[in-house]
Design a protein around this nucleic acid. Structure first.
Lengths: 218, 218
DNA sequence: CTTGACGTAGAACGCATGTTCGATTATGAT
DNA sequence: ATCATAATCGAACATGCGTTCTACGTCAAG
């Protein structure tokens, strides 16, 4: 949680901000100046206006000038920061096949989409989801029916859990990746601590994306 | 998605509904009657009012009478149907200890809360979350650091994945539960298909809740 | 003490906005 | 054709509501 200098907010300003949020959670529409006045215990409408100017300057609220109920908390103002992100389920992952990668044209229709709280996955860019079939991913502690949220990227850091397509075996797998011997060799370590890591030639492995989150619904 | 007889909606009514949703997505506050009039291409404010009455009767919008911008789509009207639910993380689960159960008094402060899309967990009632420490849950395919979303319940169906406290061993575990021998014996089957099920006396086991979802952030 | 910035109050202004009402015109069943 | 019902329109009304202005009090710096 990054807050913009909350300590510099006067106590009535904090009350106003809290009241607006509470009011919107309750009514799904912002309060009027006078409702703020009563609800936050401010003595006059001009005082509300006064405090609102300060909150606006601090980018904590957005205002539509001269419009009724035209004050909304800044967080709710831009749709980018919405609390859920829709991730398209682009296919199934099977050990014997390359993991599907996102088709840019694929529209995110409701049936093939999973909603994830943004607080879990962060930025929604480049995200796609795979449904795991069979128990081929058992050493990544992933079972039949699980949903894997992936972020498409070529760059992975040591220790990232990633989807790797092994060209010599012609199959995909989910492992923690560590570069060794100057990047010539990859150490692939199963998520399951009971299993031993193994090693592959970096030329025979291609990284398809990193795992952001694993979801198992029961 | 259950819609209430959408076919009986006249075409201008559909336009109004669509416009309100679009407007709210854009501005985070509902439109005025006159904005609806222009935005949905209605000829007069009284016509908007007229159509709004119909939409209200069909429970598609909620209205605050005589309040400015007092028309909100019914879906957004009750906070119950919000798209995320906040689940309190009430503690950690360790094999050698009983799993913590939710403290009703515990306030859901931001630090100890996880946001889950409602589409994943459904009803938010009775939900709590546990953070898994160590690899004691490895046979449930759950690793150190994973978050388990639980629903507090005494009733479990055969095959449900549940947290069971074994009184004779004084430890908690996550297994699929099957009642056998008329409920006298419980069959506990690990989520991991490579592991064998085992059996306990029902009198020595108490069910603490069922697993709704497992989240692994990476 | 003076001054100026800041916080406070209350009232008034003026446009915005939800509502209502009477009148007029389809629509559709009898 | 007739009658009831639904749909439409424009205008007017009363009040909701954001804004602004003036006056006053407080307090620290010069």
């Amino acid at each position: 949680m990054s807050r913009l200098a909350p300590d510099t907010l006067t106590e009535p300003q904090q009350r106003i901000l809290a009241f607006i949020s509470q009011y919107m959670a309750e009514h799904d529409l912002p309060p009027t100046i006078r409702e703020i006045q009563k609800g936050a215990g401010i003595s006059s409408t001009s005082m509300v206006s006064y405090h609102l100017k300060a909150l606006e300057k601090a980018h904590l609220v957005n205002r539509y000038e001269r419009r009724s109920r035209g004050v909304v908390p800044a967080r709710a103002a831009h749709a980018q920061l919405r609390d859920v992100v829709s991730v398209p389920i682009v296919g199934r992952i099977v050990a014997s096949e390359p993991a599907p990668t996102p088709d840019p044209d694929a529209l995110a229709d409701a049936e093939n989409t999973i909603q994830i709280a943004r607080s879990i996955v962060g930025n929604g860019d480049g995200l796609y989801a795979l449904e795991v079939k069979g128990d081929s991913m058992i050493d990544a502690l992933i079972n039949d029916g699980d949903i894997v949220i992936m972020r498409r990227t070529s760059e992975v850091n040591n220790g990232d859990l990633a989807a790797i397509f092994l060209t010599d075996r012609n199959e995909s797998t989910l492992k923690r990746v560590y570069r060794e011997k100057g990047g010539l060799r990859l150490k692939l370590k199963p998520e399951n601590p009971n299993m031993k890591p193994f090693y592959v030639d970096a030329r025979h492995a291609q990284i398809q994306g990193k795992v952001v989150c694993v979801i198992r619904r029961t």
